[in-house]
């Protein structure tokens, strides 16, 4: 089968789209590379190279002396495991059946709209319980736990509100951490808890970037230290902004560490 330059471009673009969605959903670099290799390999196209950066992905494909390089930008990464798994399943199916590029692109579009999400109320409740559990693990007393659950739930509501308006990640982190820490500390004080400081800190744990932190290390272990380092720096910056907000909340509530 002879592939024209335009055919190579279509393959490169759809591979970039799949890689972009995977990256946004929280996949590691190794997964992105495997995605590119699977989509190219089934068509007899050689994946000459793929560079996965924090904000962009570049792919170079080659076949019969023709080669093409295309790049796509990547929005700030998040975590969406169901969409991540759905895209992986689609890529595997596309690779096994050598699915036409147009069909793959159309099904990817459909997935992005059809993959279900938990309702907001359930996410807010789950985050509240998770942070209260965190507080319990850290040694907060029972009186502080309801305050932590309510404060972190309120923080999650604010996070979703700001996220949907496209507000900068670090502004979101600062605002959410400040609100959650303040409410958590205040609630613990009003309920008579002796672990007000733990409640204040635990209420912000919904923001701890656990997936990027583990991805950073896995990327380095897998041999991609550049993106691993970039992820580690972003994790560090998020933690610095959370700490600044906790510090402000402590000042507002006159809590001594």
């Amino acid at each position: 089968m002879i592939l024209r330059h335009r055919d190579l471009e279509q393959i490169a673009l759809v591979a970039l789209r799949c890689a972009r969605v995977l990256m946004q959903c929280g996949s590691s670099v190794r997964v992105i590379h495997e995605c590119g290799a699977l989509l190219a390999g089934c068509r007899g196209v050689e994946l000459l190279g793929m560079r996965v950066g924090y904000a962009s992905i570049t792919i170079t494909l080659s076949r019969d002396g023709n080669s093409i390089t295309r790049m796509a930008t990547v929005p700030p990464p998040g975590v969406n495991q169901r969409l991540d798994q759905a895209v992986r399943t689609l890529v595997r199916e596309a690779s096994e059946t050598c699915m036409p590029v147009a069909e793959l692109s159309e099904r990817l579009d459909r997935l992005m709209h059809d993959v279900p999400r938990y309702p907001d109320w359930l996410v807010v409740t789950a985050v509240g319980f998770a942070c209260a559990a965190f507080a319990g693990l850290l040694g907060a007393d029972a009186l502080a736990l309801p305050a932590v659950a309510v404060a972190s739930g309120a923080g999650q509501v604010l996070r979703m509100f700001l996220h949907r308006r496209g507000v900068n990640l670090f502004v979101v982190v600062t605002a959410v951490a400040l609100l959650a820490a303040f409410l958590g500390g205040l609630g613990a004080r009003l309920s008579g808890s002796f672990t007000q400081e733990l409640a204040l800190v635990s209420s912000t744990l919904l923001l701890v970037p656990g997936v990027p932190a583990t991805n950073a290390e896995m990327d380095v272990v897998d041999g991609y230290p550049t993106l691993g380092s970039a992820r580690a720096v972003s994790v560090l910056m998020v933690m610095v902004f959370i700490a600044v907000s906790i510090w402000l909340a402590q000042i507002l509530l006159a809590v001594r560490a």
Partner: peptide, 8 residues
């Protein structure tokens, strides 16, 4: 579980 729900 809470973080699992948050991660969808």
């Amino acid at each position: 579980t809470g973080f699992g729900v948050l991660f969808n």
